[in-house]
Nucleic acid binder design. Sequence first.
DNA 1: TATATTTCTTTACAATTGTTAAGTGGCAGG
DNA 2: CCTGCCACTTAACAATTGTAAAGAAATATA
Lengths: 189, 189
Amino acid sequence: MSATIPVSVSGSRPLSNDLWQQYKHFWKPLSVPAKTLLLKEGEVSRKAYFIDQGSLRIWFNSQGKDVSFQFFFEGEGVSSFESFFKSLPSHFNIETLEPSRLYYLHKDDYEQMVAEAPIIKDVILEAAIDRMANYTQHFLSAIKDTPQERYRKLLEERPHILQRVPLQYIASYLGITAVSLSRIRNKMQ
Amino acid sequence: MSATIPVSVSGSRPLSNDLWQQYKHFWKPLSVPAKTLLLKEGEVSRKAYFIDQGSLRIWFNSQGKDVSFQFFFEGEGVSSFESFFKSLPSHFNIETLEPSRLYYLHKDDYEQMVAEAPIIKDVILEAAIDRMANYTQHFLSAIKDTPQERYRKLLEERPHILQRVPLQYIASYLGITAVSLSRIRNKMQ
DNA sequence: TATATTTCTTTACAATTGTTAAGTGGCAGG
DNA sequence: CCTGCCACTTAACAATTGTAAAGAAATATA
């Protein structure tokens, strides 16, 4: 495994530690082509993923429209947090953007892991709080910034996204149409 | 105390249980007038609040503009989650909208509580995941719905907000100006 | 390489929103 | 009762965005 298994299971930065190393054998390798659906809207998530190579996106269907919600790359963990931890139907689809080499943790193995080492829950709680802070920032940006500002911030803070994610997905992520994003890009020369 | 101390400490529905009842003496009563600042942007939160009577809002300053982020009412817990649990400077202000009767839990007492009953962390984790699901829905609505639709949903799902929160605050919460909200309201007769 | 398919850009027009400023109504304090 | 303050509405105009359709560019597939 070239990247380190992260503490987070839903998109936070990777954060290795002894505890996690101890249980990394629970993570199983998986290689999939682009556009592979790893989790389908409405299904209960039984797996948390870690990206060794490639990229994923989380999206959902809104009145026939494909709306991207978040993008993930090497070294990041991905899951439908609420679905995985609470065994509820997922509101989202999880799909590969590129051919990807992944590791996944099955819910049964996760259960065994926390049964053996309950302290792992602290790690999960911290990850959940981090995730929440992240979503909060997303939401705040959506209500306080214009689409131009959101695009400019994305360009500054996560330029790699622009190089690896189709613009139509980025447009829906910014809450605008592909046409409007194209105009914004044109205006910024 | 007329309302039950909730499991959540950041806005989820109240959810009493034996465990929580056992520690409810840690919560101290506090009565404050309207527009009282309970937590200031940049400060580290040392208290989590529970609303017995009245209402609160979380807001922040964005380039001189007052942007409301969330509203809370009787029976709800309120805190700057990340600030309280991770002792980081808060990104938000917490302020009363109306004269309010509150209960608060000091961070020191919270520490003692989880030291005595570590299982309370499970409850916190669940609350955190609930919060996250909530923020997620907020964000999704912000990128997929028009301001009209968001206003219509607010009217349907949380009509009490319209009756107790000034429209200017609701406008910023919806990501639009007070003028635009007024037009939308007018258009919907 | 050639062709097909997908992605992105451009255009024109309608609809929505922001901005600024003026006007209306309610409410509290003197 | 009056005055001032605050919240909300309305108006006019500029700017932005959505929609639909056509065209250009890039990518995939044979």
